[in-house]
Amino acid sequence: MTIISLAGVTKTFDSGYTALRDVNLDVAPERFVALVGPSGCGKSTTLSLISGLDRPTSGAITVRGKPVGGITDGVGFLFQRDALLPWKTVRDNVLLPLQLRGVGGEEARSRVAEWIGRVGLRGFEQSFPYQLSGGMRKRVALAQTLVYNPEILLMDEPFAALDVQTRNLMEAELLTLWQGSRKTVIFVTHDLEEAIALADEVVVMTAGPGRVKARYDVTLPRPRDIEQVRFDPRFTELYSQMWNDLRDEVLESYARANAAG
């Protein structure tokens, strides 16, 4: 079973930069897949293509067996940058996707209240984004994405800008929310530890143009304690295996950046 499939996908931007070259990737439903690689390896581009925000130069992308054209249905996207509408309150931000889907009245109200509660922001309904901390804004973004119950979650380094403590908290919360939700997650990060701690499967990509270099199953048991799991011997073992793969790519991309700079 696959829910998302990329076959021979290449993406070259107008600037002439090739972000992805001949990428093949199949994702099974309800899996938590982490995409790791050095910066500029096309991880974010992969998410844009799956969501339908951008089109591949060549190759085929299918979601639930249907080729992607226009925005993909049932997809939630968590961006690295703040994407909340600054002129809407927390409540109105979370309400927006329901509004766009024509869900209104009592149902919309109760779902919004439920999700604001689930991400721990009760009492902040009337706040504007600028009045919240970075971690709180991420929670709102999470509620905004989950409130319309998308089957697929695309996450583009969503916690990269947070401090380490907040980040660990958010990771733990994400796992709690995801557990039993039957959602498929593709989580882009450059942090190998984060990838292993969260995912069922880690895909290592090459330095740009990105290709799939290796895939690893993370067999650590669930539910996981985000803090404790890092001390599990299997975690360390996986980490050193993947780091071997990743290191070459990071060095490669680093060397190239230096040569270019």
């Binding site: 844009s48 969501s51 925000l53 925005i71 997809v75 939630g76 996207f77 961006f79 940058r81 703040d82 994407a83 909340l84 509408l85 809407k88 927006l96 996707p97 766009l100 889907r101 905004q144 994405t145 319309y148």
Partner: peptide, 20 residues
């Protein structure tokens, strides 16, 4: 990013106009 976000959430052209 704001435009991309609302588009993924299901906004059509006019919605993007109105909300963003």
């Amino acid at each position: 990013t704001l435009v991309a976000n609302v588009r993924v959430m299901g906004a059509k052209r006019l919605d993007v106009m109105r909300h963003v």
